[in-house]
């Protein structure tokens, strides 16, 4: 893995108004670095700010304070037209495959849309070629091109979502809980696909998940988030074998384990405060 920094955040903070003149701080003074070619996982409970952080990194929302660098450029200072080239380099795969595809568009149009918006291909024929190439990449058949999203299973829809995200050859793929809504056997297929794509295309991937065993399989490094702050960052093997932060230990002990897989730690009956 090259040690070149692709994306970094410098003390970003984002808060949302709560109504009664208070603000909920979703991301609090977070700094992180992501290297080119690595898969970085963000883990934590729901509401801990992992999705907000991802949106800040992609500049889908603006931070209250702090800066975000993509490939050495401060993208938090850019706006409008200047930001557009960077949009192309960051693509996202969403959680719910059913609601992230337009039900009235067929598969060809869904995957071709980013290509057409960016005027990547010169002719319709070239676009079709590229779409077929993308379908092949995500292991879907060419004959599916004229079908509509409702004719596919959850796993296949997620493959279409991935093909669409890859259409523009992005540097960074952000997967926001992309496998959480899938069954285990389908989840395994999609995880294998993501791992293979990362290897073949040299993608960097920001993988957001609450499932620690999935993260263990796919990530190189892990950031554990809690209540808007990163409490531990490290290599996967280090985090799982010797977690240092209490919260990481607590998360790890909560995973239901199949028998014969390590000892049980009592997660306690209390509720973690936020």
């Amino acid at each position: 893995m090259s040690e070149q920094i692709l994306l970094s955040a410098d003390k970003v903070t984002k808060s949302f108004p709560l109504g009664n003149r208070k603000r909920h701080i979703a991301v609090n003074n977070v700094s992180l670095e992501m290297y080119r070619g690595e898969t970085l996982a963000l883990v934590g409970e729901s509401g801990c700010g992992k999705s907000t952080l991802a949106k800040l990194l992609m500049r889908l929302t603006d931070a209250d304070s702090g800066r975000v660098f993509f490939d050495g450029t401060d993208i938090s200072a850019l706006s409008g037209r200047a930001l557009r080239p960077y949009r192309r380099k960051m693509q996202m795969v969403f959680q719910d495959p059913a609601s992230s595809l337009n039900p009235r568009m067929n598969i060809r149009d869904i995957i071709a849309e980013p290509l057409e918006v960016w005027h990547i291909c010169k002719s319709r024929k070239e676009t079709d070629e590229r779409v077929k190439e993308l379908l092949d990449l995500v292991e879907l058949k060419e004959s599916y091109l004229s079908r509509f999203p409702h004719q596919f299973s959850g796993g296949q829809k997620q493959r279409i979502g991935i093909a669409r995200a890859l259409a523009l050859n992005p540097d960074l793929l952000v997967c926001d809980e992309s496998v959480s809504a899938l069954d285990v056997s389908v989840q395994a297929q999609i995880l294998n696909l993501l791992k293979r794509l990362k290897k073949d295309l040299g993608l960097s991937c920001l993988f957001i998940s609450h499932d620690l065993s999935v993260v263990n399989f796919i990530a190189d490094r892990v950031c554990v988030m809690r209540a808007g702050e990163i409490c531990e960052t490290g290599d996967v093997s280090a985090i799982y074998s010797s977690p240092t932060h209490d919260y990481t230990k607590y998360l790890l002990s909560s995973i239901p384990r199949t028998r014969g897989m390590g000892n049980q730690v009592d997660p306690g009956d209390g509720v973690m405060g936020s």
């Binding site: 285990v184 056997s185 989840q187 395994a188 995880l191 294998n192 791992k195 293979r196 620690l212 065993s213 999935v214 263990n216 399989f217 796919i218 799982y240 790890l252 995973i255 199949t258 897989m261 390590g262």
Partner: peptide, 11 residues
Amino acid sequence: SIPRIGANPEY
């Protein structure tokens, strides 16, 4: 097909 902590297969 369940990813497991401790075992790290390639796929």
